[in-house]
Protein backbone atom coordinates (compact mmCIF):
# COMPACT_ATOMS: atom_id res chain seq x y z
CA UNK A 1 0.00 0.00 0.00
CA UNK A 2 1.31 3.41 -0.76
CA UNK A 3 1.15 6.49 1.41
CA UNK A 4 -1.73 8.14 -0.38
CA UNK A 5 -3.88 5.03 0.06
CA UNK A 6 -2.91 4.86 3.72
CA UNK A 7 -3.87 8.48 4.09
CA UNK A 8 -7.31 7.72 2.73
CA UNK A 9 -7.68 4.68 4.97
CA UNK A 10 -6.78 6.77 8.00
CA UNK A 11 -9.32 9.38 6.92
CA UNK A 12 -12.12 6.82 6.75
CA UNK A 13 -11.09 5.34 10.07
CA UNK A 14 -11.08 8.74 11.72
CA UNK A 15 -14.59 9.42 10.41
CA UNK A 16 -15.83 6.19 11.93
CA UNK A 17 -14.25 7.01 15.29
CA UNK A 18 -15.54 10.59 15.18
CA UNK A 19 -19.02 9.21 14.62
CA UNK A 20 -18.66 7.07 17.74
CA UNK A 21 -17.32 10.10 19.62
CA UNK A 22 -20.30 12.13 18.52
CA UNK A 23 -22.67 9.50 19.86
CA UNK A 24 -20.73 9.27 23.10
CA UNK A 25 -20.82 13.04 23.57
CA UNK A 26 -24.56 13.07 23.04
CA UNK A 27 -24.93 10.29 25.52
CA UNK A 28 -22.78 12.30 27.91
CA UNK A 29 -24.95 15.40 27.55
CA UNK A 30 -28.05 13.32 28.23
CA UNK A 31 -26.56 12.38 31.59
CA UNK A 32 -25.73 15.97 32.42
CA UNK A 33 -29.23 17.42 32.52
CA UNK A 34 -29.95 18.45 36.09
CA UNK A 35 -32.76 16.59 37.80
CA UNK A 36 -35.86 18.59 38.60
CA UNK A 37 -35.36 17.49 42.20
CA UNK A 38 -32.48 19.93 42.24
CA UNK A 39 -34.87 22.84 42.34
CA UNK A 40 -34.29 23.29 46.03
CA UNK A 41 -30.63 23.84 45.33
CA UNK A 42 -31.74 26.24 42.69
CA UNK A 43 -33.64 28.36 45.12
CA UNK A 44 -30.65 28.39 47.40
CA UNK A 45 -28.32 29.40 44.67
CA UNK A 46 -30.69 32.23 43.79
CA UNK A 47 -30.54 33.52 47.30
CA UNK A 48 -26.79 33.31 47.21
CA UNK A 49 -26.68 35.23 43.98
CA UNK A 50 -28.76 37.98 45.41
CA UNK A 51 -26.42 38.21 48.35
CA UNK A 52 -23.45 38.32 46.06
CA UNK A 53 -24.94 41.11 44.08
CA UNK A 54 -25.46 43.15 47.16
CA UNK A 55 -21.79 42.70 47.86
CA UNK A 56 -20.96 44.16 44.47
CA UNK A 57 -17.57 45.74 44.22
CA UNK A 58 -16.24 48.06 41.64
CA UNK A 59 -12.68 49.13 41.50
CA UNK A 60 -10.79 51.45 39.29
CA UNK A 61 -8.18 48.93 38.32
CA UNK A 62 -10.93 47.05 36.61
CA UNK A 63 -12.35 43.85 37.92
CA UNK A 64 -14.98 41.60 36.50
CA UNK A 65 -18.33 42.87 37.61
CA UNK A 66 -20.18 40.96 40.23
CA UNK A 67 -22.79 39.99 37.69
CA UNK A 68 -20.18 38.53 35.42
CA UNK A 69 -18.07 36.98 38.04
CA UNK A 70 -20.65 35.15 40.00
CA UNK A 71 -23.12 32.65 38.69
CA UNK A 72 -26.07 34.92 38.28
CA UNK A 73 -28.68 32.24 37.91
CA UNK A 74 -30.02 28.98 39.07
CA UNK A 75 -28.43 25.76 37.91
CA UNK A 76 -25.17 27.58 37.52
CA UNK A 77 -22.30 25.22 37.02
CA UNK A 78 -19.25 25.28 39.17
CA UNK A 79 -19.74 24.46 42.81
CA UNK A 80 -23.51 24.34 42.31
CA UNK A 81 -23.43 21.72 39.61
CA UNK A 82 -22.42 18.25 40.66
CA UNK A 83 -21.58 16.17 37.66
CA UNK A 84 -22.75 12.62 38.11
CA UNK A 85 -20.33 9.76 37.91
CA UNK A 86 -22.25 8.41 34.94
CA UNK A 87 -21.88 11.61 32.96
CA UNK A 88 -18.22 11.88 33.84
CA UNK A 89 -17.54 8.35 32.65
CA UNK A 90 -19.36 8.95 29.39
CA UNK A 91 -17.49 12.19 28.95
CA UNK A 92 -14.14 10.43 29.30
CA UNK A 93 -15.12 7.75 26.83
CA UNK A 94 -16.14 10.41 24.32
CA UNK A 95 -12.89 12.28 24.86
CA UNK A 96 -10.81 9.13 24.34
CA UNK A 97 -12.61 8.48 21.09
CA UNK A 98 -12.01 12.06 20.02
CA UNK A 99 -8.29 11.80 20.75
CA UNK A 100 -8.10 8.67 18.65
CA UNK A 101 -10.12 10.16 15.79
CA UNK A 102 -8.12 13.38 15.77
CA UNK A 103 -4.85 11.46 15.82
CA UNK A 104 -6.03 9.43 12.83
CA UNK A 105 -7.05 12.56 10.98
CA UNK A 106 -3.78 14.35 11.66
CA UNK A 107 -1.92 11.22 10.57
CA UNK A 108 -3.96 11.15 7.40
CA UNK A 109 -3.07 14.75 6.61
CA UNK A 110 0.62 14.12 7.35
CA UNK A 111 0.71 11.02 5.16
CA UNK A 112 -0.90 12.89 2.35
CA UNK A 113 1.70 15.60 2.76
CA UNK A 114 4.47 13.01 2.56
CA UNK A 115 2.82 11.35 -0.41
CA UNK A 116 2.85 14.56 -2.42
CA UNK A 117 6.09 15.93 -1.00
CA UNK A 118 4.68 19.33 -0.07
CA UNK A 119 2.39 20.88 2.55
CA UNK A 120 -0.91 19.03 2.20
CA UNK A 121 -3.14 21.97 1.40
CA UNK A 122 -2.97 22.58 -2.29
CA UNK A 123 -6.63 22.14 -3.19
CA UNK A 124 -10.07 22.36 -1.63
CA UNK A 125 -10.17 18.73 -0.50
CA UNK A 126 -6.86 19.05 1.26
CA UNK A 127 -7.95 22.37 2.69
CA UNK A 128 -11.02 20.83 4.24
CA UNK A 129 -9.18 17.87 5.75
CA UNK A 130 -6.34 20.00 7.09
CA UNK A 131 -8.74 22.53 8.60
CA UNK A 132 -10.82 19.88 10.32
CA UNK A 133 -7.64 18.20 11.56
CA UNK A 134 -6.61 21.52 13.10
CA UNK A 135 -10.00 21.90 14.80
CA UNK A 136 -9.94 18.32 16.07
CA UNK A 137 -6.40 18.66 17.34
CA UNK A 138 -7.01 22.01 19.04
CA UNK A 139 -10.09 20.65 20.78
CA UNK A 140 -8.30 17.47 21.83
CA UNK A 141 -5.42 19.39 23.33
CA UNK A 142 -7.62 21.82 25.26
CA UNK A 143 -10.66 19.74 26.21
CA UNK A 144 -9.41 17.71 29.14
CA UNK A 145 -7.66 20.47 31.01
CA UNK A 146 -10.65 22.81 30.68
CA UNK A 147 -13.35 20.19 31.25
CA UNK A 148 -14.89 20.85 27.88
CA UNK A 149 -16.69 17.55 27.50
CA UNK A 150 -19.91 19.50 27.06
CA UNK A 151 -18.45 21.17 24.00
CA UNK A 152 -17.51 17.94 22.23
CA UNK A 153 -20.64 17.23 20.28
CA UNK A 154 -20.66 20.78 18.91
CA UNK A 155 -17.15 20.33 17.57
CA UNK A 156 -17.21 16.74 16.40
CA UNK A 157 -20.46 17.02 14.45
CA UNK A 158 -19.29 19.88 12.20
CA UNK A 159 -15.97 18.08 11.67
CA UNK A 160 -17.87 15.04 10.43
CA UNK A 161 -20.04 17.13 8.16
CA UNK A 162 -17.06 18.87 6.59
CA UNK A 163 -15.15 15.62 6.12
CA UNK A 164 -18.16 14.01 4.50
CA UNK A 165 -18.51 16.94 2.16
CA UNK A 166 -14.81 16.90 1.38
CA UNK A 167 -14.92 13.24 0.42
CA UNK A 168 -18.04 13.40 -1.67
CA UNK A 169 -17.75 16.73 -3.41
CA UNK A 170 -14.20 17.94 -3.29
CA UNK A 171 -12.10 14.80 -3.54
CA UNK A 172 -8.91 15.26 -5.57
CA UNK A 173 -6.13 12.76 -6.20
CA UNK A 174 -2.88 13.66 -4.54
CA UNK A 175 -0.98 15.74 -7.05
CA UNK A 176 1.50 18.52 -7.47
CA UNK A 177 1.03 22.19 -6.81
CA UNK A 178 0.49 25.06 -9.16
CA UNK A 179 3.72 27.06 -9.38
CA UNK A 180 2.10 30.02 -7.70
CA UNK A 181 1.59 27.93 -4.58
CA UNK A 182 5.18 26.76 -4.37
CA UNK A 183 6.57 28.93 -1.63
CA UNK A 184 7.50 28.21 1.93
CA UNK A 185 5.48 31.22 2.90
CA UNK A 186 2.50 29.21 1.79
CA UNK A 187 3.39 26.63 4.43
CA UNK A 188 3.67 29.28 7.14
CA UNK A 189 0.75 31.38 6.06
CA UNK A 190 -1.70 28.55 5.60
CA UNK A 191 -0.75 26.50 8.63
CA UNK A 192 -1.21 29.50 10.90
CA UNK A 193 -4.48 30.27 9.14
CA UNK A 194 -5.70 26.76 9.91
CA UNK A 195 -4.75 27.14 13.52
CA UNK A 196 -6.57 30.46 13.66
CA UNK A 197 -9.64 28.91 12.09
CA UNK A 198 -9.51 26.09 14.61
CA UNK A 199 -9.65 28.60 17.44
CA UNK A 200 -12.31 30.69 15.73
CA UNK A 201 -14.36 27.51 15.39
CA UNK A 202 -14.07 26.58 19.06
CA UNK A 203 -14.90 30.17 19.99
CA UNK A 204 -17.90 30.13 17.69
CA UNK A 205 -19.31 26.98 19.26
CA UNK A 206 -18.78 28.35 22.76
CA UNK A 207 -20.24 31.69 21.68
CA UNK A 208 -23.43 30.09 20.45
CA UNK A 209 -23.78 28.12 23.67
CA UNK A 210 -23.22 31.35 25.57
CA UNK A 211 -26.14 33.00 23.81
CA UNK A 212 -28.42 30.04 24.50
CA UNK A 213 -27.30 29.80 28.09
CA UNK A 214 -27.74 33.53 28.63
CA UNK A 215 -31.24 33.41 27.24
CA UNK A 216 -32.21 30.58 29.51
CA UNK A 217 -30.64 32.32 32.47
CA UNK A 218 -32.75 35.38 31.82
CA UNK A 219 -35.91 33.38 31.28
CA UNK A 220 -35.41 30.17 33.22
CA UNK A 221 -37.14 27.35 31.40
CA UNK A 222 -39.66 25.15 33.13
CA UNK A 223 -37.53 22.09 32.64
CA UNK A 224 -33.76 22.28 32.89
CA UNK A 225 -31.70 20.38 30.35
CA UNK A 226 -27.99 19.97 29.69
CA UNK A 227 -27.67 23.68 28.92
CA UNK A 228 -28.22 24.31 32.60
CA UNK A 229 -25.26 22.08 33.38
CA UNK A 230 -22.86 24.24 31.40
CA UNK A 231 -20.65 26.84 33.03
CA UNK A 232 -22.45 30.13 33.65
CA UNK A 233 -23.03 32.42 30.70
CA UNK A 234 -20.41 34.82 32.04
CA UNK A 235 -17.88 32.06 32.14
CA UNK A 236 -18.80 30.85 28.65
CA UNK A 237 -18.45 34.39 27.40
CA UNK A 238 -14.96 34.66 28.86
CA UNK A 239 -13.98 31.34 27.37
CA UNK A 240 -15.19 32.45 23.96
CA UNK A 241 -13.31 35.72 24.35
CA UNK A 242 -10.05 34.00 25.22
CA UNK A 243 -10.39 31.64 22.27
CA UNK A 244 -11.21 34.51 19.95
CA UNK A 245 -8.28 36.44 21.30
CA UNK A 246 -5.84 33.65 20.47
CA UNK A 247 -7.46 33.24 17.08
CA UNK A 248 -7.24 36.97 16.41
CA UNK A 249 -3.53 37.04 17.14
CA UNK A 250 -3.01 34.08 14.83
CA UNK A 251 -5.16 35.71 12.18
CA UNK A 252 -3.14 38.92 12.39
CA UNK A 253 -0.09 36.82 11.72
CA UNK A 254 -1.85 35.06 8.85
CA UNK A 255 -2.63 38.40 7.29
CA UNK A 256 0.97 39.56 7.49
CA UNK A 257 2.45 36.29 6.24
CA UNK A 258 -0.05 36.36 3.39
CA UNK A 259 1.06 39.86 2.47
CA UNK A 260 4.69 38.79 2.44
CA UNK A 261 3.86 35.83 0.25
CA UNK A 262 1.82 38.00 -2.11
CA UNK A 263 4.77 40.34 -2.40
CA UNK A 264 6.94 37.43 -3.54
CA UNK A 265 4.41 35.93 -5.87
CA UNK A 266 2.71 38.94 -7.38
CA UNK A 267 5.08 41.75 -6.61
CA UNK A 268 2.59 43.66 -4.49
CA UNK A 269 1.82 42.82 -0.91
CA UNK A 270 -1.67 44.11 -1.03
CA UNK A 271 -3.84 44.45 -4.10
CA UNK A 272 -7.29 43.67 -2.83
CA UNK A 273 -7.87 40.43 -4.62
CA UNK A 274 -10.91 38.59 -3.25
CA UNK A 275 -8.92 36.40 -0.91
CA UNK A 276 -7.12 39.40 0.53
CA UNK A 277 -10.37 41.31 0.84
CA UNK A 278 -11.95 38.57 2.91
CA UNK A 279 -8.92 38.02 5.07
CA UNK A 280 -9.09 41.73 5.80
CA UNK A 281 -12.85 41.67 6.39
CA UNK A 282 -12.47 38.88 8.93
CA UNK A 283 -9.71 40.79 10.63
CA UNK A 284 -11.67 44.03 10.93
CA UNK A 285 -14.82 42.28 12.12
CA UNK A 286 -12.95 40.55 14.90
CA UNK A 287 -11.10 43.79 15.72
CA UNK A 288 -14.53 45.36 16.08
CA UNK A 289 -15.49 42.50 18.39
CA UNK A 290 -12.42 43.11 20.57
CA UNK A 291 -13.29 46.80 20.68
CA UNK A 292 -16.91 46.11 21.46
CA UNK A 293 -15.96 43.90 24.31
CA UNK A 294 -13.65 46.54 25.71
CA UNK A 295 -16.04 49.45 25.24
CA UNK A 296 -18.16 50.81 28.01
CA UNK A 297 -21.83 50.37 27.37
CA UNK A 298 -21.60 47.76 24.62
CA UNK A 299 -22.89 44.65 26.28
CA UNK A 300 -21.19 41.35 25.78
CA UNK A 301 -24.09 39.86 23.95
CA UNK A 302 -23.84 42.46 21.22
CA UNK A 303 -20.11 41.96 20.96
CA UNK A 304 -20.71 38.25 20.63
CA UNK A 305 -23.02 38.87 17.69
CA UNK A 306 -20.13 40.65 16.00
CA UNK A 307 -17.86 37.69 16.65
CA UNK A 308 -20.44 35.31 15.21
CA UNK A 309 -20.67 37.50 12.12
CA UNK A 310 -16.90 37.27 11.92
CA UNK A 311 -17.17 33.51 11.85
CA UNK A 312 -19.64 33.67 8.99
CA UNK A 313 -16.98 35.65 7.13
CA UNK A 314 -14.44 32.92 7.96
CA UNK A 315 -16.73 30.31 6.41
CA UNK A 316 -17.32 32.44 3.33
CA UNK A 317 -13.59 32.96 3.00
CA UNK A 318 -12.87 29.24 3.02
CA UNK A 319 -15.70 28.21 0.74
CA UNK A 320 -17.11 30.74 -1.71
CA UNK A 321 -14.02 32.88 -1.99
CA UNK A 322 -11.73 29.90 -2.51
CA UNK A 323 -13.81 28.69 -5.39
CA UNK A 324 -13.98 32.12 -6.95
CA UNK A 325 -10.33 32.90 -6.48
CA UNK A 326 -9.08 29.63 -7.94
CA UNK A 327 -10.78 30.97 -11.01
CA UNK A 328 -9.10 34.31 -10.77
CA UNK A 329 -5.84 32.64 -9.80
CA UNK A 330 -5.84 30.49 -12.93
CA UNK A 331 -6.47 33.55 -14.95
CA UNK A 332 -3.60 35.33 -13.27
CA UNK A 333 -1.09 32.66 -13.99
CA UNK A 334 -1.98 31.65 -17.48
CA UNK A 335 -2.00 35.08 -18.97
CA UNK A 336 -1.59 38.74 -18.37
Amino acid sequence: MNLAANANAALYASMIVYTLAMLAFTWHLAARAPKVADSKAVAESRAEVAANEREGVLVGAGAPTPAERRPATPYAAGPGFEESLKSRQRGSIALMLTYLASALLVASVLMRGLAVGRPPWGNMFEFATAATAAVGAAYSVLAKRNNWQWLGVFIVTPILLVLGLALTVLYTEAGELMPALKSYWLGIHVSVAFLAVAFFTLAFAVGLLYLVRLRREEKPPAKPNFIESLPSSASLERTAYSLNMVAFILWTFTLIAGAIWAKQAWGAYWQWDPKEVWTFVIWTVYAAYMHGRATAGVDHRKSMYIALAGYVAVIINFTLVNLVSTFVGMHNYSGM
Binding site: L58, V59, G60, P64, T65, E68, A296, G297
Partner: peptide
Protein backbone atom coordinates in the same frame (compact mmCIF):
# COMPACT_ATOMS: atom_id res chain seq x y z
CA UNK B 1 -24.32 49.29 34.48
CA UNK B 2 -21.74 47.31 36.34
CA UNK B 3 -19.62 46.67 33.30
CA UNK B 4 -19.05 50.36 32.67
CA UNK B 5 -16.72 50.95 35.52
CA UNK B 6 -14.64 47.96 34.63
CA UNK B 7 -14.34 48.69 31.00
CA UNK B 8 -13.44 52.27 31.47
CA UNK B 9 -11.24 51.35 34.33
CA UNK B 10 -7.92 51.66 32.63
CA UNK B 11 -8.50 53.35 29.40
CA UNK B 12 -9.37 56.82 28.42
CA UNK B 13 -12.64 56.11 26.77
Amino acid sequence: TPSDGIRTGMRPD
